[in-house]
Simulated scan of single mutants.
Amino acid sequence: FAACHLLMKLVIRRYRPSDKDTVLTLFSNGVVEQISPCFYNAMTSPLYLSITLGLCAAGYLLGSILGAVVLVGGWVALIYFSCHKLYTHYIREKIRTDMQDIPGNFMTRPDDCFFVAEAEVSGRSQVIGTVAIVAKQSGTERYGELFRMSVSSSCRRAGLASRMTQAVIDFCRERGLPKVVLQTTSTQAAAVALYEKLGFLRIFSQPTLSFPYWMIILNYLPLRYVYYFPLM
């Protein structure tokens, strides 16, 4: 009931400068939430399970249970540190660059936009979600690329991400862009399920040559999706 009530009062509108602090908080919190899934995804991969078992065996063969615990503990701490570094570095970099000037980077051209979702929560109006669209061109083909999808953790499972994605699709359709492209990662299972449900097709799931090898070792892969508008 609460989810339905929230959606009834939801407004998706253009970003305003007064939204900045809330938008940056939503963005940062949303990225930080990916640390644990990334860590779990890495540690449950066959490679990392094998390494963990190997370290346990090495400690046992050395005749020290404490040694086995220290080896495994150090290994687990290293992987968690790597996951944490990956996401916190991303937050710092984006806040330093495009999120520092949202109007300048996402709203200066007519085919670009930064949307926020606003709803009444606990009796007052709050920004509870964000999404951006940037028009790009590859050769002679123009398309829209979706960025900065974030939803407040207190407002999940209410269909908000679906509504915001649909707002981006409608925005691109109105401007004659033939497709919408986005990139997510292999650790974001909920996002992947949402985009596929809405009709996005995966076009690749392999790291590029510039993709850092240590991210691949974390079992962290970029997934690129495209939504094609039906031919009329």
Rank of each mutant, 00 (worst) to 15 (best):
T140W: 08
L55S: 10
A119W: 03
T44K: 13
A158Q: 05
I51C: 04
P178Y: 08
F200H: 08
P207I: 10
V226C: 14
F81K: 12
Q126T: 11
Q206A: 15
A77M: 04
L198Q: 11
R224D: 12
S154R: 07
F204T: 13
E33K: 09
D111E: 14
S154Q: 12
L198H: 02
L201N: 08
S150H: 10
R202A: 10
T187I: 14
T108Q: 13
M215E: 09
C56N: 09
C113M: 14
Y48M: 13
M107L: 07
L231F: 06
F114N: 00
V180W: 01
A132E: 01
G67I: 09
Y213H: 11
S210Y: 13
V76Y: 06
N29S: 11
G63M: 01
W75S: 09
F229T: 05
I91C: 09
R148C: 09
Y195C: 05
G30K: 00
L26P: 03
Y15A: 00
V134E: 05
H84A: 08
Y228T: 08
S50G: 11
R13Q: 03
A2G: 10
L146Y: 03
L53V: 11
T108L: 13
S64P: 06
K136A: 07
Q183L: 11
I65V: 15
Y228C: 12
